[in-house]
Amino acid sequence: MYQYLDAADLAALLQVSPATISRRARRQPHTLPAPAHLGPCFPLRWRRTDVDAWLAERAIS
């Protein structure tokens, strides 16, 4: 079972505001981990495993 993060959870991990996450998701999606697609009417969510991998990849670079 996956653990899903919402914009507030992701913002806390990245140390930015939830508004920044929402703005980046709309305007600069390449600056965030890929969101999980849970359905057309579901708010944005990110899989914790994907976020951890994305963060680890950037820590090495």
Rank of each mutant, 00 (worst) to 15 (best):
M1N: 01
Y2R: 13
Y2D: 12
Y2A: 13
Q3E: 12
Q3K: 15
Q3I: 15
Y4A: 08
L5G: 00
L5V: 01
D6P: 11
A7F: 05
A8N: 07
A8Y: 00
D9Y: 03
L10M: 06
L10D: 04
A11W: 05
A11D: 06
A11G: 13
Q15N: 13
Q15Y: 03
V16L: 08
S17L: 07
P18H: 04
P18D: 05
P18C: 05
T20L: 11
R23G: 00
R23N: 04
R24T: 05
R26M: 04
R27H: 15
Q28P: 00
Q28C: 09
P29K: 10
H30D: 07
T31K: 11
T31G: 00
T31W: 06
P33C: 09
P33M: 09
P33F: 00
P33W: 03
A34W: 09
A34P: 00
A34Y: 08
A34C: 06
A36T: 10
A36R: 08
A36C: 04
H37G: 08
L38I: 01
L38K: 10
G39M: 10
G39D: 05
P40V: 05
P40G: 11
P40A: 14
C41Y: 14
F42S: 15
F42Y: 14
F42H: 15
F42T: 15
P43Q: 05
L44N: 10
R45F: 01
R45V: 00
W46I: 02
R48T: 12
R48N: 02
T49R: 12
T49D: 15
T49N: 13
D50T: 07
D50G: 03
D50A: 09
V51W: 00
W54C: 12
L55M: 15
L55F: 03
A56E: 13
R58E: 09
R58S: 09
A59L: 12
A59W: 07
I60V: 15
S61D: 13
S61Q: 14
